[in-house]
């Protein structure tokens, strides 16, 4: 634990008036980790993601990426350093083809997104890199189709493909299987399981079965605070967690 974590927050806090969404969150994500962030509705999971990615500015606390402080960096600068997220509700370029969705991301990462002269097609390496990302996700056959015409499960995979196009060091997967029919979650799980080993992945998830299947460590967030953190079996045995979170599931 001596080396710098891939992602670390210290006493990260944020309030909207009387509502505290982050209450001094201390969090560590090791390099190459497969960790999950769980918590009941309104626990502050999505706010945490927004704070870490820079969509929200914290009231107090620090965020470190690979040992370097990024608390004051703009969202785009964090992405350039390898901090990448996916969205709970797909955020895609719906009118564009699958290949183009990913190509846009690859172009930004390669720093050619501002090129105003050479056509995209002349940046063939970027297009081919984007295509290469589609194949392992089983999206290659749909490469030329507009994203809006894909089944939702496939759109979730495009969401992951775009993130991978940004060559992330830390990948925040915000409910990767949200809204996907249970029969199709297998492909999402496979996609997450086959992420390159050097990517540290934090999976923000509601579905406990999915969490126990994918994560080596679990962080439980309740009312903007870390309630517990540990290996899945520790979390499953934790009385406080069972009360606020797992108990809720039993009642459902």
């Amino acid at each position: 634990m001596s080396a710098a974590a891939a992602l670390e927050t210290r006493r990260l806090s944020k309030s909207f008036g009387a509502l505290t969404v982050a209450n001094g969150i201390d969090f560590r994500l090791e390099r190459g980790a497969r960790q999950a962030l769980i918590g009941p509705n309104g626990a502050g999971k999505t706010s945490f993601v927004n704070l870490v990615t820079g969509a929200l500015a914290p009231d107090a606390g620090h965020i470190h990426l690979d040992g370097a402080e990024i608390t004051a960096l703009a969202q785009a600068a964090r992405v350039k350093r390898g901090l990448v997220r996916t969205f709970q509700v797909t955020q895609l370029f719906r009118g564009l083809s699958v290949l183009e969705n990913v190509t846009l991301a690859v172009c930004e990462r390669r720093g050619i997104g501002g090129d105003m002269w050479r056509p995209v097609g002349r940046h063939r390496e970027a297009v081919e890199e984007a295509y290469a990302l589609l194949e392992p996700l089983g999206l290659a056959a749909d490469a030329a189709r507009p994203v809006a015409t894909l089944a939702y499960g496939h759109q979730r995979l495009v969401e992951i493909a775009i993130a991978l196009g940004l060559a992330p060091k830390v990948l925040l997967l915000d409910e990767p299987a949200a809204g996907v029919p249970s029969g199709e979650t297998g492909r999402i799980i496979a996609a997450v399981e086959s992420l390159p080993a050097d990517i540290a992945a934090l999976i923000i998830e509601h579905d406990i079965d999915l969490v126990f299947r994918l994560a080596q460590r679990i962080t439980v967030l309740v009312q903007g605070r870390v309630l517990a953190e540990g290996a899945p079996e520790q979390i499953a045995a934790d009385q406080a967690v069972r009360r606020v979170y797992l108990g809720e599931r039993d009642r459902r």
């Binding site: 990615t53 969509a55 969202q75 785009a76 600068a77 964090r78 992405v79 350039k80 990448v84 997220r85 969205f87 955020q91 895609l92 370029f93 719906r94 009118g95 564009l96 183009e100 190509t103 846009l104 991301a105 172009c107 930004e108 990462r109 050619i112 997104g113 501002g114 090129d115 105003m116 002269w117 050479r118 056509p119 995209v120 097609g121 940046h123 970027a126 775009i162 196009g165 940004l166």
Partner: peptide, 27 residues
């Protein structure tokens, strides 16, 4: 020339989904 360049395509990206453009690190 401009609309077929990566810059031009990124404009379309901004029109289609500005949230996502921020998230892929576009200025």
């Amino acid at each position: 020339r401009l609309v077929h360049s990566p810059f031009g395509r990124s404009l379309t990206g901004i029109r289609e989904n500005v949230v996502r453009m921020h998230a892929i690190g576009a200025p």
